[in-house]
Design a protein around this nucleic acid. Sequence first.
RNA 1: GCGCUCGUAGCUCAGCUGGAUAGAGCGUCGGACUUCGAAUCCGUUGGUCGCCCGUUCGAAUCGGGCCGAGCGCGCCA
Length: 576
Amino acid sequence: MTPIDPATALLPRFRDALGRAFGEEHAGADPMVRRSDRADLQVNVALGLGKKLGQPPRQVAEALVKALQVDDLVERIEIAGPGFLNMTLRADWLGAAADRALEDDRLGVPFAEKLDRVVIDYSSPNVAKEMHVGHLRSTVIGDALARTLGFLGHTILRQNHLGDWGTPFGMLIEHLLDLGESASAEVSVGELAAFYKAARSKFDSDPGFAERSRKRVVSLQGGDAETLRLWRILVDASQKYFEKVYALLGTQLVREDVCGESFYNPRLQPLAEELEREGKAQIDQGALCLFVPGFKNKDGSPLPLIVRKADGGFGYAATDLAGVRYRVGELHATRILVVVGAPQAQHLAMIFAGSRACGWLPENVRCEHVAFGSVLGTDKRMFRSRSGESARLIDLIEEAIDRARAEVEKRWPDIDPETKASMAKAVGVGAIKYADLSSDRVKDYVFDLDRMVQFEGNTGGYLQYAHARPRSILRKAGEDRPAGKISPTEKAERALVLELLSFGATVQAVGETLEPHRLCGYLYNLAARYNEFYDQCPVLKAEGEVRASRLRLCALTARTLEQGLSLLGIAAPDRM
RNA sequence: GCGCUCGUAGCUCAGCUGGAUAGAGCGUCGGACUUCGAAUCCGUUGGUCGCCCGUUCGAAUCGGGCCGAGCGCGCCA
């Protein structure tokens, strides 16, 4: 099928022309077809090539244009400045491409050329601990990437690396016993912070309790049935709570995706023994260490991954190594994404390098740390609630929904409560997720509810509104799938079509770079182009073919926005 | 001390992997509703791209050095 995206469609044409004009060895060069503010597309290849060939770039550009066969696609092509090619595309080609997108359930987005089995490790909250904004980032970014890569045809294996094992469980289980098992109910409704804190303070102040806790850890690790039963109660209660948060957020994680630290526990001892036996790791100061070349600590001495602690226990390095090994060896991943905060960059780099050195991570398996920055308050410091503690994620979500509800209330006082509630949820949750996804993930970002729930600028609400507008028109027209042909003639129509056609290229870029903010930026531009079109080009008042064309533009815009938002994990209500 | 990340308009952010005069939104000020829903649109204001060198036809983008902010650097995750 001919590509929907004009830049993609032009690529082979330019390769051919480059080969014809300058020899086959240049046919592989990237012609650098880019969007431009002074033409539909511009091509920059002549400048660099001129240098290489020792010819004036303008002359190269002329020869290139002469060899080019693009009459079916390009209306006009001009050489400008030092050798830029400015291209105006044919309106009939643009219209036909838009029509093809509209007729296709994938909106013309091609599948990825090489299909991967992608393991995505994200969300990963801790049992018996509150979810906070850090988990929001991992959850929202990971979910968006999972959806996007899935749409591109990759097989997605979600892994929720739950913090469900380790020494804290001694005190948590003992605390549960003190309160009585019925107390687990309070854990499932989100009193996790209080539960954890109470256990912690008892552990610090009551030596008897601390002693019981330590013993309990031993029984837990020894596999004592009763201890495991109690542990399971805590894990289940927490999972119920997490699932409530996921449901509120619309996150696609389910219980089957949970593959927590406890899962790896039985694998750690054999892993350590193997490393020791094969001489890959050495005992140093009592601990079994895997030294990864290139990593140093403060005094310049080699920095190890501590596989087994001096006391015989296992830390997170062991678990993470086992994780890579499992994902490659048993899940057969060809690409692994770990969505955790940027501060863990060094640790993960060591895990990946160590796994490669041990032969658990072959060269052809991509393994990437999808790093993200911290969430800051409006004071530019780490985000806290007013009381100074790290704010509960669920409270923030609910506050966003409340604010959205107030807005809906103001504008649609008469609609039924059920619709009102679902609108408020879509808008409130969408606002939070969009704010998280719309800026470069590696940077810190400021969590400002006031800004997020607005509808102006690059916000979730603006996009949702831009989607609801064409839906409303289609509803009025009574045509869900308007027939006819798209033929862009007005300036606003051309600009809208041009934007619509690069949806696929944008989605592919997100799949490569793992940067959802590119999709956000694209959708924001699309929404803006649509709103301009809406302002300048009457649809329902138009007649005949013009009306049909515009109705189809509405339909394609609505579907593209809906699909794009869906890849971000954001709802697109038909009205709002 | 070493390493990683970041520094773009008063504020919040883009800048498509080196291309033409650096773009949005908010804010300021001023316009457009007997509406295909104005949660919108149009105009106005505003930047020495932290600083200095270098690479080149061309640098916010690449390299080096400073300045500033944040994070990490052996048994927590």
